[in-house]
């Protein structure tokens, strides 16, 4: 099938545009390489499906999906879900690390105040 449908062309161009944006964000260090990976994979997949009608049709058929457009929506949804889950995991980890830092700062600050207090004469209870 040599002819690409309008939808496919729009899809492919959008994918390329997104890929360019992701690369540019990485270049300007606004997005870390780690996070860019998932985005690049998804744009490449969408671009391939957009440019190649046989691939789009065969994948759609193989998955038992009736319409090619549903296939595209499914990929978008799968990507969105994956990304959100991945971000939730990262956020949980950041939360734990953030707590550890707050605890450390609290204890260090206390230590500092105790040391400073020792230099000035204060009535201290012998521990």
């Amino acid at each position: 099938m040599p002819f690409l449908s309008k939808t496919q062309i729009i899809m492919a161009i959008a994918a390329l545009g997104l890929a360019a944006t992701v690369l540019d964000l990485v270049r300007r260090r606004r997005l870390s390489e780690e996070y860019s990976l998932l985005w690049m994979v998804s744009t490449v997949v969408v671009a391939i499906l957009g440019f190649s009608t046989p691939v789009l049709k065969s994948v759609t058929h193989a998955l038992g999906i009736l319409y090619e457009s549903s296939m595209v929506f499914m990929i978008g949804l799968a990507f969105g879900t994956t990304m959100l889950l991945y971000l939730s995991v990262r956020l949980s980890r950041l939360g734990r690390e953030h707590q550890a830092v707050i605890r450390e700062v609290a204890l260090l600050r206390h230590e500092l105040e105790t040391l400073a207090g020792r230099e000035a004469p204060t009535p201290g209870a012998g521990a």
């Binding site: 707590q99 707050i102 204890l107």
Partner: peptide
């Protein structure tokens, strides 16, 4: 009251 105080800069909850 002369007891040791450690201060979290943000709220971590009872467990924290």
């Amino acid at each position: 009251r002369g007891v040791a105080v450690v201060r979290h800069v943000t709220n971590l909850g009872v467990g924290g």
